[in-house]
Design a protein around this nucleic acid. Structure first.
Ligand SMILES: [Mn+2]
Ligand SMILES: [Mn+2]
Ligand SMILES: [Zn+2]
Ligand SMILES: [Zn+2]
Lengths: 147, 147
DNA sequence: ATTATTAATGAGAATGATTGTCATTATGAT
DNA sequence: ATCATAATGACAATCATTCTCATTAATAAT
């Protein structure tokens, strides 16, 4: 059950074609721990896939994001960053250094958090007639190099 | 103790000049409950302040944000939105409708949340040597018109 | 395996938000 | 009232992202 097989199956099931570029982007994102921008992904892939196009990177990231295979992040830089979304892993938070921009994954305390979020969701539903599908928490501060 | 006096005082104290445009933007943002973009602020103010410039709106919003008088929000639209930040009020969360883009303020359960956040902050400090200065939580889902 | 269909791609133009430049203006100190 | 200069407005420049369209390649049909 290599990831590539799972991905291809998922693409087929959703009626999308399984292409070299799509595999390349998923391979890259699933292997790195970085949160990469479209341009960074493009620069990296260009080395092993000469001729690849930046528009395709954008289109593919949008598709992957709609398919739920990657998360699109916005940390107020004026551009998006992307990370692979493993099927099993729980969602995680991000700690963002306001000085150097470093992003660090954080996944502690999720159980307690789930209780709290559930309460908030119920409250939102009751008060405003909302349906909460997802939530995101970011922490801002200074990393060890910048403190 | 009108707000304008407090603002002017704050500007003076920080060594910034107190100008018509700065007052206009603060007046607008402190009165609306909307989360406005720079362009929307510009369009609105142009009616009462003909000749005002969009660059000035951007520069001022940046300054106000650095001064902590407004919050800059990013809800993944590819542009920022701004809201007045009252000195007394606690921070609040945002519920964002993924269908129509509606943003709704939510400020319930903040005490319980503070406990949780404090724990996370301590953990971050211990594990990664981080200093947490701020945090932000957004909820995504469907509003009552879109559900 | 060959061919046909058409989704996906790459190049580059277009768009939209934000930032930079610079001459002019207006604020706050003297 | 005068002065020094921070702030402004016009508009050019930049940067991320989207759009257009001719070409290519993935898949289905043969
Ligand atoms: Mn992450
Ligand atoms: Mn708000
Ligand atoms: Zn840092
Ligand atoms: Zn809605």
């Amino acid at each position: 059950m290599p990831l590539a097989h799972i991905w291809r199956h998922r693409f087929k099931g959703d009626g999308f074609r399984w292409t070299l570029t799509r595999k390349a982007i998923l391979d890259l994102l699933s292997r790195t721990s970085k949160h990469m921008s479209a341009q960074e992904i493009y620069d990296t892939l260009l080395k092993s896939y000469p001729g690849i196009g930046l528009s395709t990177i954008y289109r593919t990231l949008d598709l992957l994001s709609r398919m739920g295979l990657v998360n699109r992040l916005n940390i107020g830089e004026g551009k998006s960053r992307y990370e692979y979304r493993s099927g099993e892993e729980k969602a995680h938070h991000h700690f963002i250094c306001t000085n150097c921009g470093k992003i660090i994954d954080y996944s502690g305390f999720l159980d307690e958090e789930l209780d709290l979020v559930e309460k908030i969701e119920k409250n939102l539903a009751r008060k405003y007639n909302f349906i909460v599908k997802d939530h995101n928490t970011d922490f801002y501060g200074l990393c060890k190099n910048c403190r």
